[in-house]
């Protein structure tokens, strides 16, 4: 549990939301994932909270939200607004096919010593915490490249995360589903906008383009307030990296996978933490 909490914290930290010591989940909730024609818009809620999909904690930043149009080219969000508990934005689905909307980021954080003092990397949070930290200058640099030459005890962790949703106008297409080959990818076997509750769905997870065998994946249905159990499904991928999901009911599901390894792309980093998040809409048959 503790490991899970700390991994989820990574995702939370990337949002530059206040560092709260609990398993807050970052989520994107589209108003729909299936539309008819190219006159439609999708409106998306974006927030960080414990329960899905109740915005009751912090809004997600919208500056880093990206849009991939069906042909793979870059699109744009519109009407972005930040509320107390959630952000919201729109995407005009003016081309047929499958759109991808979300965030993809890689950050590096860590620490080093300089002249006997502790410094941090990638944490822009002002002076060190605690009573002894008050009044001291922020011993922090923004990126690994800013580490001074005389630094010792350099410990760096690379954190890469994706959070993406898929919306299809008309017939589904696969251009935006292609894995990037970098970090943790989800490559749908079942199209994410063709999910129906009476058919199992399959998704392949890849790390640097290779099947992620035995990867733990969490799925949580929305609407916890209207049932007793959280309804969490803790699943794992097979040897081929494929996850099979049997849906208990139609609805919106939050999917998250986190893992660590020691193959970071960042020079001097020793550890890599990877997170993949999506929201999937499962239709009734």
């Amino acid at each position: 549990m503790r490991a899970l909490v700390s991994r989820l914290l990574v995702a939370t930290a990337l949002l530059s939301a206040p560092a709260a010591l609990s398993a807050h989940r970052q989520w994107l909730l589209p108003s729909t994932t299936i539309v008819s024609g190219t006159d439609n818009w999708v409106t998306v809620d974006a927030a960080v909270s414990n329960d899905l999909f109740y915005p009751d904690h912090f809004p997600m930043q919208t500056e880093s939200i990206q849009v991939w149009q069906p042909d793979g080219s870059t699109g744009a969000i519109q009407n972005a607004a930040k509320g107390r508990y959630r952000s919201t934005f729109d995407v005009q689905l003016d081309k047929p096919g499958t759109w991808k909307i979300g965030t993809a980021s890689t950050n590096v954080s860590g620490s080093f010593k300089l002249n006997g003092e502790d410094w941090t990397v990638g944490r822009r949070r002002g002076p060190p915490r605690g009573p002894e930290g008050a009044g001291r200058p922020a011993h922090s640099v923004a990126t690994a490249a800013d580490i001074p030459a005389g630094a010792t005890d350099v410990k760096l962790t690379e954190m890469s995360s994706r959070n993406e949703i898929f919306v299809t106008a008309g017939e589904p297409t696969a251009t935006v589903l292609k894995p990037t080959g970098k970090g943790l990818d989800m490559e749908p076997v079942t199209h994410p906008d063709s999910l129906v509750s009476n058919e199992p769905a399959r998704f392949r997870f890849l790390i640097d383009g290779k099947p992620a065998a035995g990867l733990k994946v969490t799925l949580i249905p929305g609407g916890k307030r209207y049932r007793d159990s959280e309804g969490v499904m803790e699943l794992a991928t097979g040897a081929d990296g494929v996850l099979e999901v049997k849906w208990p009911a139609p609805g919106m599901y939050w999917l998250n996978a986190t893992t660590t390894d020691n193959h970071p792309a960042t020079p001097r980093a020793t550890e890599r933490r990877m997170s993949y998040t999506s929201t999937l809409e499962v239709m009734a048959p």
Binding site: I34, S36, G37, E171, A284
Partner: peptide, 22 residues
């Protein structure tokens, strides 16, 4: 206009998935 009658065809959700969307 902005909301043509085709907008709601996807609410025939089984048909939409079985081929209506194409």
């Amino acid at each position: 206009g902005n909301e043509p009658g085709t907008k709601w065809l996807s609410e025939l959700r089984a048909w939409w998935r079985k081929g209506g969307r194409g």
